[in-house]
């Protein structure tokens, strides 16, 4: 029973963690991309489309990442090259992504998809309790953890990460030091787009191998909230994603056991939990402000 619950928590948390890790890097570079939901849903539809047309879920998740990255580049062009308002452009990206994915996915509605294979190591996967949890996951689950460690290492231990943080904290100084503020931000936004695309592809290729319109159901927004919750520290995003996964799963189990409570109220739990967590975290100003990239959401035009 406990094993089953942990397994479902992992599947609920992985798309959130993938998208949140990507957005964390974007925001560390000083860009607020509110289009995570749009990039995720594009990743979901592209992931599904590539999977059923090639028969390969692996190519599907690559397709999801590419689709997420491509739409993120529209956002990058509008906000970085043309210095449009980032908040409004992020909303535009979400509305655009939801519309385009609905259009692209129309013919896939009701079609069965293919499920991403899970790892199967003879001997290890069969171990009692931990076997399936540690050695029986699909590649995206391992990738989500690799991303957390990778991003953590990149931001704190590499020169490129230092430059990225400098760009996010003070773009004028970074520019004066000769770094390409806009270039760094383009790369960060593209990375965030690819990660959100992977998170979306996880939904349509691994979580439920189906395409349903708007299937991200606000997960992109929850991923954005997770970045705030994590106060821009990768491992905290992982903790947050798993807490949210637990809330989601709790809700499903409560529904399955027929707790005498309307299902709609249980379905509200992840959204209400997001609000509660955001309030709790914003109460703690010092921890938040210390890590907030100072240039977050501000446009940069180099003066030549």
């Amino acid at each position: 029973m406990l094993e089953a619950i942990i397994l479902t928590i992992i599947t609920a948390a992985t798309p959130l963690l993938l998208a949140a890790t990507g957005e964390l890097v974007v925001e560390k570079s000083g860009v607020l991309n509110l289009g995570v939901e749009g990039m995720m849903v594009m990743g979901a539809v592209a992931g599904f489309a590539v999977t059923i047309s090639t028969g390969s879920p692996l190519l599907g998740i690559v397709g999801g990442a590419v689709a997420g990255m491509l739409v993120s580049l529209i956002f990058a062009f509008v906000t970085l090259t043309l210095v449009a308002n980032q908040v409004a452009s992020g909303l535009a990206l979400t509305l655009f992504g939801l519309g385009l994915s609905g259009l692209m996915g129309e013919s896939f509605v009701g079609q069965p998809g293919l499920k991403l294979q899970s790892l199967d190591v003879p001997g290890l996967t069969d171990l009692p309790f931990v076997g399936k949890i540690l050695f029986g996951q699909d590649i995206l689950v391992y990738l989500s953890f690799a991303a957390v460690f990778g991003v953590s290492w990149f931001l704190n231990r590499t020169r490129a990460g230092l430059i990225l943080r400098a760009v996010g904290d003070n773009h004028t100084s970074a520019h004066a030091l000769g770094y390409s503020v806009v270039g760094v931000r383009y790369l960060a936004v593209a990375f965030g787009g690819a990660m959100a695309g992977l998170g979306g592809a996880y939904l349509s290729v691994a979580y439920t191998p189906l395409w349903v319109e708007n299937m991200t159901a606000g997960r992109g927004w929850i991923a954005l909230a997770l970045v705030v919750f994590a106060s821009w520290i990768p491992w905290r995003a992982a903790v947050g994603a798993y807490l949210f996964g637990a809330v989601t799963v709790l809700q499903f189990h409560a529904q399955a056991f027929g707790v005498g409570f309307p299902s709609q109220f249980l379905a509200m739990l992840p959204y209400l939990a997001t609000v509660v967590v955001l309030v709790a975290i914003s109460g703690n100003r010092r921890a938040t402000l210390f890590n907030t990239p100072s240039s977050l959401g501000k446009s940069f035009v180099p003066d030549r």
Binding site: I74, F77, V78, L82, V83, A84, N85, A88, S89, L91, A92, L93, L95, F96, G97, L98, G99, L100, G102, L103, E106
Partner: peptide, 22 residues
């Protein structure tokens, strides 16, 4: 054609509006 094209066009329009404001 799909009526969903309308939402795509609305999204594109918003991008163009924001970009043109530059």
């Amino acid at each position: 054609m799909s009526s969903k094209l309308a939402t795509v066009i609305q999204g594109v329009l918003l991008f163009f509006v924001l970009a043109a404001d530059t």
